[in-house]
Simulated assay, not measured.
Amino acid sequence: MGPESNSPRSAAQGQPAYNQPEQGRQANYQQPPGYPMPGQPPPQQKKGLAIVALVVSIVALVLCLIPVINNVAIVLGLVGLGLAIAALVIASKRKQKKGMPIAALIMSVLAIIGAIVSQLIYVSVLNSVSDAIEEGSDGVVPLTEEQQSEAAEIPALGLGESAPVGDEYTVTVNAVNLDATEDILAVSEVNEAPQGQYVLVDLSVEYTGAEEGDPWIDLGVNLVGSDARQYDPSTCSAILEKPALEVPTLENGGQGDYQVCMDVPAEAVQDAQLFVEPTLSFNDSDRVYWSVN
């Protein structure tokens, strides 16, 4: 029995017991936190903050050009900018992709700039409109040098000639009385004396549109004086023999005759011109000029 205990077989039987502590150390080994176990897919990166920043910046960019609402776009742009910066910092620390935070950052900046620029444009337009309304509230509008030169270059029709004005009317200026003060004062006792002198214009119109029209609403008549100012019928509140308000609503082919008057300084009627244009036209090329002499 003694020799058998020293045999290689006995040594082999004892080998597992010798290696048990090493196996225990391997069994107790744990993966450091933050790293996937061997054979497992890496954990998904969290992009919630970047997504929120991107959504907010997109909304701000869409709203930045809408009047009034673009005030909200500025606030949303600032919020999106803060979220994008935070998401970019987190992505840098975690070594994540930075495409989404960078996109949110760029769009937020563009939204803020777009909202501010659009606000400046809207304020400028509103100021221009306000100034134009204020200047024209008395029926007199000053002309720029460019407008004067353009008016001088446009060929004027003679009295009694007809021309289409806009897409819905054919207009004929039959007569222009540059000193109609006595005639207008004789029409009614309530007519007051002008500050300058009354100019009386006789017109004939034909409606050529597809629906219906009121020429006293649809057409504007203006006198361009030699003093580089435009005078419209709102300068004259006198009662006329053929007031425009008495022209009925016209159908296609309907015709009407009426008069308009302006209160114009005596020195401004020399070399004056008359033009008719659609009321809602903002294009000077729609004007048709007539010579008043």
Results as ranks from 00 to 15, higher is better:
256 G>L: 00
160 G>H: 01
160 G>I: 00
152 A>E: 00
222 N>G: 15
209 G>C: 03
219 L>P: 15
234 S>I: 11
224 V>R: 10
241 E>C: 08
221 V>P: 04
210 A>Q: 12
159 L>M: 02
157 L>S: 03
221 V>D: 03
160 G>V: 01
184 I>G: 04
164 P>H: 05
162 S>T: 11
260 V>G: 02
200 L>T: 04
189 E>P: 13
154 I>N: 01
162 S>C: 05
181 T>F: 12
266 A>L: 09
156 A>R: 01
161 E>N: 05
179 D>V: 03
245 L>Q: 15
242 K>P: 09
192 E>L: 15
234 S>V: 08
205 V>P: 02
184 I>K: 06
254 G>S: 06
160 G>L: 00
156 A>F: 04
166 G>T: 02
168 E>P: 05
165 V>T: 04
173 V>Q: 01
168 E>D: 06
176 V>Y: 05
180 A>N: 06
198 Y>G: 14
261 C>V: 11
190 V>S: 10
179 D>W: 03
199 V>L: 07
198 Y>L: 13
167 D>E: 01
216 W>L: 13
202 D>N: 12
197 Q>E: 14
185 L>H: 13
176 V>G: 07
165 V>D: 07
231 Y>F: 01
167 D>H: 11
202 D>C: 09
184 I>S: 04
218 D>K: 05
228 A>Y: 01
171 V>G: 08
200 L>Q: 03
185 L>F: 12
209 G>N: 05
250 L>Y: 10
185 L>C: 11
212 E>K: 13
230 Q>A: 07
175 A>P: 00
251 E>N: 13
204 S>A: 13
223 L>P: 04
257 D>E: 02
252 N>A: 13
169 Y>N: 02
181 T>R: 10
234 S>G: 07
170 T>N: 14
253 G>Q: 09
174 N>F: 02
168 E>S: 14
184 I>Y: 08
215 P>S: 04
228 A>M: 04
168 E>K: 09
198 Y>C: 14
194 P>Y: 14
173 V>N: 00
159 L>Y: 04
214 D>M: 15
203 L>A: 01
180 A>V: 08
157 L>W: 02
228 A>E: 03
245 L>V: 14
174 N>V: 03
189 E>Y: 14
235 T>K: 08
165 V>S: 07
228 A>G: 10
259 Q>L: 04
171 V>W: 07
